[in-house]
């Protein structure tokens, strides 16, 4: 079910604070965040976030099209290298 509009988009407060800080400093650095559940807001466009995937921070350069989605969508948590049988089949 979709989120109620009257609540507004959900963003963890510390993400907003960090984003604002890096905006003001003007430097282009990776902002490390753990909050995969936060919505990507319009004011995040142009910034680069390091979104934690449970192991490391994946750099995500936010573009306009990403607005409204969650950070977690851009930082996959699973690595799949394929099955051993697949490799054998490919070699043939």
């Amino acid at each position: 079910m979709a989120r109620s509009i009257w609540k507004g988009p959900f963003v963890d407060a510390y993400v907003l604070k960090k984003a604002e800080k890096s905006r003001d400093s003007g430097k282009s650095e990776v902002i490390k965040i753990w909050s995969r559940r936060s919505t990507i807001l319009p004011q995040f466009v142009g910034l680069t976030f390091g979104v934690y995937n449970g192991q490391k921070h994946i750099p995500v350069a936010v573009t306009e099209e990403m607005i409204g989605q969650k950070f977690g969508e851009y930082s996959p948590t699973r690595t799949y290298y394929g099955h051993a049988a697949d490799k054998k089949a490919k070699r043939k």
Binding site: M66, Q69, E73, Y74, P76
Partner: peptide, 12 residues
């Protein structure tokens, strides 16, 4: 195609 180019989970 847009989803695939974005590199988001749905695109993957």
């Amino acid at each position: 195609k847009r989803l695939m180019d974005l590199g988001c989970y749905r695109g993957l």
